[in-house]
Amino acid sequence: MRSRLLCLFVTIISLVAAQPSNGNALERGLRAFSEGRFSEAEPSLREAVAVQPDSFEARFALGATFGELKRPTEAIVQLQVAHRLRPEHPDALKLLAAQYIAAREYPKAIALLSGVRAPDEEIYLLLIESSQAGGDSAKSFATAEAAVARFPASAQVNCWMGFQLQFSGRYDEARGYLEKAIQLDAGYPAGYYLLGQVLLKQQKARESIPWFEKAIALEPEDIEARMAYAQAVASAGDLAKALHILQTAEKSAPRDPRVHLLLSRLWFRLGDEANAREEASLSLQYRNGEPALPDIPRALRRGQ
């Protein structure tokens, strides 16, 4: 998504170049955004919006900036205006849908996406995610089936289909789609991660390990892949190695309650109840009252 956005902004910058002087704030904001300096982009783009409240570019850019800063509620406000200003603009709609998902406003995402007359692959992927996250797994499955029929050569679509089948316990069918996803795009980490998960669900821990290792090699920051890798290694009997993997993951994501939950279970299996209790306590603390933990693999998510 980010690479597409950057392409978009290159386009926007060139369009803005011909703007009068009140485009300077916008230019500054866009430049900062394209260089990944989102905190610096924000004040410039706020200024641009204040000067020209009906500027699609300013609203869109500010919305995207809030999205990068993980402030979906504020992103939504800007992107709703942008979408209203140019309802035909596909990226504004998609980005708005992604921010609805990030803000857990799944019905709004679904309503927005369902209104698109000729959905492309991205629209399908966003629809699948918002349905799944919103609890309508039947609709998500149906959308995934429709997507794979329309875009059979998409690694991401095949991954989603594989995930849906794995979620439904249809493991052998899931493997088919995931193996195809890997063939289509050997550099897409989700395929390896999900294939590892399917094997893990099938009690084939040792077979799953190389797939998790590959997913991590492609995306070293993927905490979920590291957690799953640790589970596989633990199931295969190497508790010490599993502990090391989780402790490394914990350094990257110290406030992820799932990591601490897995650590607590592992410490208990290793006979260290004191550490088990401490990790359990941290897991509870970092849950922050949330009833459930995110389950759509991050590698598949488009709504942050």
Binding site: R104, Y106, Q132, A133, G134, G135, S137, F167, Q197, E224, A228, P291, A292, L293, P294, D295, I296, P297
Partner: peptide, 9 residues
């Protein structure tokens, strides 16, 4: 990871 329903508001 399994999907859950997070529609608690």
């Amino acid at each position: 990871m399994r999907i859950y329903n997070r529609a608690v508001i």
